[in-house]
């Protein structure tokens, strides 16, 4: 064990961590406690009077079939987005790792989408797949698929998942490429001499050694799908058709800022916070066990 560090000055250490503490307090604990407080208030839309109702908001939210639906939507959306973006990124990274000539060019090009703002990425996909003007929608209909994400919930879901995953692929790609580069070439060569063909080498050597990267990305992508995809959903479907693509975050926004049911919205964001904390804890506790760190 490292010996405990003792500072001769009693005040200076606190002074030095004060800025960080202040930022955390002001931008994290204060809003979080506000949300917690508001989740137990019932307010009228104009904010003129409010009433402390304890856990009534939570009871109401959790018994709302729309909210249960939103949980399902979020689960499907998050799992699909994380899977799609990670699988696609891994395939691209493995391919890019094999390129010998102008590999930097390929990598740069593949990293570009990350610089695109979520709403812009959403618009891009919206235009491509717009039933009346989208070129890809035209191609889909030509192939005999009745494409209409404006009316069909599952198609709308496919569209937002693709848009959300597409944006995250670059980020995942970057980490997978770095992870692949960290695997010594001699290991791959040893496996080849040991009689393992390419696919076998990937599953028995490369993939297990990538596990720390994969695990990290799983956590990041889940959080991304939960929180950072608001812009995409807002731009592409607005949560519709019906409530087919209304994720938890989108519902928080919709109930709070559109419908002005502030108490409900606050209660939902508290639940959301608990879900993400629980999810991350579970990931660290169970998935990380299977991860082998070098």
């Amino acid at each position: 064990m490292t010996p405990r560090v003792v500072f001769p000055n009693k005040i200076l250490p606190y002074l030095l961590v004060a800025p960080q503490l202040a930022i955390t307090l002001v931008f994290f604990y204060w809003p979080a406690s506000q949300a917690l407080y508001q989740s137990m208030l019932r307010e009228d839309p104009f904010g003129l009077k409010s009433q402390f109702v304890w856990f009534d908001n939570f009871k109401k939210v959790l018994s709302d079939p729309n909210y249960i639906n939103s949980i399902e939507v979020t689960a499907i959306f998050s799992i699909s987005t994380a899977m799609l973006s990670m699988v696609a990124a891994l395939i691209l990274a493995v391919m890019a790792d094999k390129v010998v000539r102008s590999r930097n060019l390929y990598r740069t090009l593949l990293i570009w989408p990350y610089a695109v703002a979520p709403a812009i990425a959403g618009m891009l996909w919206l235009f491509l797949f717009n039933p009346s003007i989208g070129s890809l929608a035209y191609a889909l209909r030509w192939m005999g698929i009745a494409w209409d994400p404006l009316l069909k919930g599952d198609q709308a879901m496919v569209l937002v998942v693709m848009a959300a995953a597409w944006k995250q692929i670059s980020y995942n790609f970057l980490f997978f490429v770095a992870g692949l580069q960290a695997i010594p070439k001699a290991l791959i060569e040893a496996a080849a001499i040991d009689g393992a063909r390419e696919l076998k080498r990937f599953w028995t050597i490369v993939f297990p050694l990538l596990a720390p990267t994969t695990f990290f990305l799983l956590v990041v992508n889940t959080v991304y799908a939960f929180f950072d995809t608001f812009g995409i959903i807002h731009a592409v479907t607005g949560g519709g058709p019906g409530k087919a693509t209304e994720t938890l975050v989108y519902k928080v926004y919709n109930d709070g800022f559109v419908n002005l049911i502030l108490g409900d919205s606050a209660a939902q964001s508290v639940i959301l916070m608990v879900i993400v904390i629980a999810l991350t804890a579970v990931q660290f506790r169970y998935v990380e066990r299977k991860v082998h760190y070098g």
């Binding site: 010594p184 001699a186 290991l187 060569e189 040893a190 496996a191 080849a192 001499i193 009689g195 393992a196 063909r197 050597i205 297990p208 050694l209 596990a211 082998h292 070098g294």
Partner: peptide, 20 residues
Amino acid sequence: IGPTERDIAMVFQNYALYPH
């Protein structure tokens, strides 16, 4: 013929043991 089919075994300088 690739290394997989040559039926050879190699000892590497840094051993290249599979760490996992």
